[in-house]
Design a protein around this nucleic acid. Structure first.
Length: 227
DNA sequence: GCGACAG
DNA sequence: ATCTTGTCGC
């Protein structure tokens, strides 16, 4: 059965309960294979009723696209901070299912464990797919942190109380930092290494840039670049 | 009760 | 998330 069917009729209250249960399966220790391919995952909205997911698989060494997939699905859950998974996972799972190349690592838009119940979209997708995943968010959902030096690669821990739930990373000088957190099957240190490995000359890693481009309404232009 | 709040 | 080209600045 598809995820959209399994989650049909779920209320925000049910969703929170499901998150608490699912968070139990999240692993934040390194369990990665030799990473040859890295995928960028993102969801855009064609209108208030239709979600579009984009997944782009890049060669981990060259950062060149080797595969991609798109999927569309009616929106079936409202945007509620902390419950983003229930809006985005169904359509993302559809896109992932149509890939020809299964990626070794997922870089998802949004938080990993830097979440009230330690189950942001990246973590949830990691558990659903069983794949290692990283949360790459453009802004903060939870946690506090010290100022980050304006040097490329500089980072400071993101904390919730005494617990380190992620990092605030400067991927480029002169730009707002990114909020990185382990999604599933890897540590924060490894997550930071992979994000920087996917960054070239822009604020966002190449994985995210490709996925963002294809998921947005200007996706056609990016499709043209895919050969 | 008053803010904060991924995309 | 989304409406949107060129332009100012590091």
């Amino acid at each position: 059965m598809s995820l959209e069917q399994e989650w049909a009729g779920l209320t925000p209250r049910d969703a929170v309960a499901l998150q608490r249960k699912t968070a139990t399966a999240v692993i934040t220790e390194d369990q990665l294979p030799v990473v040859r391919t890295v995928a960028g995952v993102d969801v855009g909205f064609e209108d208030k009723h239709t979600a579009r997911a984009a997944v782009v698989v890049l060669d981990a060494a060259t950062l060149e696209p080797v595969d991609h997939a798109l999927a569309r699905l009616p929106v079936s859950f409202p945007y509620v901070p902390g419950l983003l998974s229930f809006r985005e996972c169904p359509v993302v799972m559809r896109a992932l299912a149509s890939l020809k190349v299964t990626p070794d690592l997922l870089l998802c838009d949004g938080q990993g464990i830097a979440h009230p119940r330690r189950l942001g979209v990246a973590s949830h997708l990691g558990v659903l797919t069983g794949l290692p995943s990283i949360g790459v968010a453009k802004s903060r959902l939870l946690g506090t942190h010290d100022p980050v030096s304006d040097r490329r690669g500089a980072w400071v821990p993101l904390r919730d109380g005494n617990e380190v739930i992620g990092a605030v990373l400067r991927t480029r000088q002169g730009v707002k930092p990114l909020f990185i957190s382990p999604g599933h099957r890897l540590s924060l240190a490894t997550a930071l290494e992979w994000v920087m490995a996917c960054v070239t000359r822009y604020r966002l890693p190449e994985t995210t840039r490709w996925a963002d481009g294809l998921a947005s309404n200007r996706g056609q232009r990016w499709l043209d670049r895919l050969k």
